[in-house]
């Protein structure tokens, strides 16, 4: 797919100042390509400010996970600038703890031999430093985090025996225990049913307020995200962004996504909001998935 064929609709970051808080993520002119491959990201620009909830949507292979990895400092950008909490994400040092990361589900983690408490305690490991083991204080904060995500009493259960939704909550508790400022979630709703997705979003909204978190969530399920995120950005190598106050034109989304149905749902939802206030269309939480091969 040629990136040249797509219109550059990226708005200046300043257009999305949101609540006007200090910037947590600043990305300018970012491009990235894997060795021997075509560009995964092309001239991406955006800013996320403190306390915002950004939903990052786009087709599989559109560069969502690559962008997350660059923000996390796992990959180095080839051109452009990325600042997280005002610094290069690869040079955050001890402040890495301020980034909470909930990665995509993998088989290894699903079947890992550990209790819920063991997994949540992993969030304390790097602050303990080498050689030191978690003690009573770490145990206490892990138990608190388990309570915050609604799993109180399950700390001694084998994490692999939990449901998909509960395992995601454990992953969020593991991120929370390090007291992050920024929470990055990669497809946290994949594999969850509609009820599980709604519960997860409710939990994230509550945690965002309670802990003043900035949240960036990546998903290819646009309808689920459209319910909760304050801002939505569409990523398909280049980034196209808008906030809830704007109506996205169907044509723009079709170009970005090559996916008419998702465009319909966003439009539909925002029309509903205009008429009914802040309630999302309940029947569309499990919307059609985008396929960039359309």
């Amino acid at each position: 797919m040629s990136t040249q064929a797509q219109p550059n609709l990226s708005a200046a970051p300043a257009a999305f100042a949101g609540n006007g808080g200090p910037p947590v993520i600043e990305v300018a002119s970012l491009s990235f390509a894997y060795t021997g491959g075509e560009k995964a990201l092309d001239n991406v620009n955006f800013t996320v400010r403190e306390g915002e909830f950004l939903g990052l949507i786009g087709p599989n292979g559109g560069g969502k996970t690559t962008l997350l990895k660059i923000i996390l400092g796992l990959l180095a950008p080839q051109s452009g600038k990325v600042l997280v909490l005002g610094r290069d994400p690869r040079e955050l040092g001890a402040d890495r703890l301020l980034l909470g990361y909930v990665p995509q589900d993998t088989g290894v983690r699903k079947h890992f031999p550990a209790t819920v408490l063991d997994v949540v305690l992993m969030g304390t490991y790097s602050s303990l430093g080498l050689f030191r083991r978690p003690g009573a204080a770490e145990r206490e904060s892990a138990l608190k985090a388990i309570g915050h995500v609604g799993l109180a009493g399950l700390q001694d259960r084998s994490a692999s025996n939990l449901s998909g939704g509960q395992q995601q909550r454990v992953a969020i508790a593991r991120a929370l225990v390090a007291h992050p400022k920024l929470l990055l979630l990669d497809e946290p709703t994949s594999g969850l049913d509609t009820g599980g997705q709604a519960q997860l979003f409710d939990l994230l909204e509550r945690l965002q307020k309670e802990f003043h978190l900035t949240v960036v969530m990546v998903s290819h399920d646009v309808t689920a995200l459209a319910h909760f995120a304050e801002h939505l950005a569409c990523l398909n190598k280049s980034l196209h962004w808008h906030d809830r106050s704007e109506l996205i034109s169907e044509e723009v989304l079709r170009k970005v996504y090559a996916c008419e149905l998702d465009a319909f749902f966003i439009k539909h939802k925002q029309h509903l909001e205009e008429f009914h206030g802040d309630q999302g269309p309940a029947g569309h939480a499990h919307g059609p998935h985008c396929d960039h091969n359309h």
């Binding site: 996390l72 796992l74 955050l92 001890a94 890495r96 703890l97 990361y101 290894v108 550990a114 992993m122």
Partner: peptide, 15 residues
């Protein structure tokens, strides 16, 4: 244990 659980997570957390 953390590295085995998830290498990326462990790296993000600073290990």
């Amino acid at each position: 244990m953390y590295y085995t659980y998830d290498e990326n997570l462990a790296e993000v957390s600073g290990l």
